[in-house]
């Protein structure tokens, strides 16, 4: 009986101790940041931030671009975050989002060329990403498939069931692909193309990086994804080739803004200032194919993976305001025509 009661007391203490420790979840110097940066790049950026600012704790929620859009609209009455960080410009310029943002001119904003920021200072974009295919070399050899070079090549019958691409409703990468194809080909031809492509698509995947990861794992021959994922997976040692579609690579800029509703504005502003600091920009050059701020140089691995030094030469000139204005309509059409 003695053994028993001491055991019970220990158990009770353990439980009580834990409850006390975990009831409260707010600290001073704490901000909540929503982002669509990839998990690994966000982790690297945050680590650099914490080195420079050890006194601010950042709670990060990472969601796909489209998912984050829906969530911010749903929480419009009572937003839970202070900063929206690294999120597609196409989604940022939605008037319903813009009215939640507070104009703020961070330190060093002059480094960002004017065309990459809002004239009223509600957002600025310092990084971006572009579409690329991850093609599994092993599968190509095993199934005797040709190396695709363009979107057009993906229509070839031998790629039936071998292509995966992101679902544009949830993934920003998915939407930029659809938007760039519609912009390049014109709407009518664009939809015709997408319908044809659909018969070769094995799966529409919710996230923009998973198609590349699935192709890297050898589950499918071609994953339509974005350049950085391809580069990182090549670095990891996966037997894949990065292909920038010959028609030109659709692209997207990642913007940052301060929430009007923030209750920790001082820390939030320090965070935003940091995103333009030298350390931050150096990190961007390690992780992003598109950096709008001058500074570092493109890492060797990017060039080895096949990224041209002048990436402007392979990028489609995107009309972001068109992408933004027509987003709801295009997604609805996509869902009714192609969603499974």
């Amino acid at each position: 009986m003695n053994k028993l009661s001491s055991f019970m007391i220990c158990l009770a203490f353990a439980v009580a101790f834990n409850m006390g420790g975990w009831c409260s979840n707010t600290l001073a110097g704490e901000i909540t940041v929503y982002t669509s940066y990839e998990e690994d790049e966000a982790a690297a950026f945050l680590a650099a931030f914490n080195e420079d600012n050890p006194d601010i704790r950042v709670n990060l929620l990472r969601l796909s671009t489209g998912d984050l859009h829906a969530r911010m609209l749903a929480e419009r009455a009572n937003p839970r975050h202070d900063v929206i960080w690294g999120w597609a410009v196409t989604n940022m310029v939605d008037p319903r989002i813009m009215e939640m943002l507070e104009p703020y001119e961070p330190k060093g904003i002059e480094k960002v060329p004017a065309r990459f920021r809002d004239p009223e200072n509600r957002w600025f974009a310092k990084t971006g990403y572009m579409a690329a295919f991850c093609v599994n070399n092993e599968i190509l050899t095993r199934r005797n498939l040709p190396m695709p070079a363009s979107w057009e090549d993906l229509l070839r019958p031998e790629f039936k069931g071998e292509v995966v691409m992101p679902n544009p409703a949830s993934s920003g990468t998915g939407y930029l692909m659809i938007a760039s194809l519609l912009q390049m080909k014109g709407e009518e031809k664009g939809w015709e193309y997408l319908e044809k492509l659909d018969s070769n698509i094995a799966q529409y995947i919710k996230s923009g990086s998973r198609p590349c990861n699935a192709a890297s794992a050898g589950e499918f021959a071609v994953g339509a994804s974005f350049a950085l994922r391809a580069i990182k997976n090549i670095e990891e040692g996966f037997p894949i080739t990065m292909i920038i579609p010959a028609e030109g690579a659709g692209n997207e800029l990642e913007a940052t803004g301060l929430m009007k509703s923030s209750r920790n504005k001082e820390e939030a502003k320090r965070f935003i200032d940091w995103t333009l600091s030298e350390n931050a920009v150096n990190e961007y050059y390690k992780w992003k194919e598109i950096v709008t701020v001058d500074g570092g140089t493109m890492p060797k691995s990017f060039i080895e993976a096949g990224l041209p030094k002048d990436i402007g030469s392979v990028m489609v000139e995107m009309d972001f305001s068109w992408s933004a204005a027509n987003r709801d309509r295009i997604l609805e059409e996509w869902q009714s025509r192609l969603e499974r």
């Binding site: 489209g66 998912d67 609209l73 749903a74 409703a169 949830s170 094995a202 529409y204 919710k206």
Partner: peptide, 21 residues
């Protein structure tokens, strides 16, 4: 599931993804 969706995944997608409560 790939593209084979069921009710449970739809609830997840609608609520977590699209915040469509």
């Amino acid at each position: 599931g790939g593209d084979y969706n069921v009710l449970a995944t739809e609830v997840y997608n609608q609520v977590i993804g699209q915040a469509n409560f």
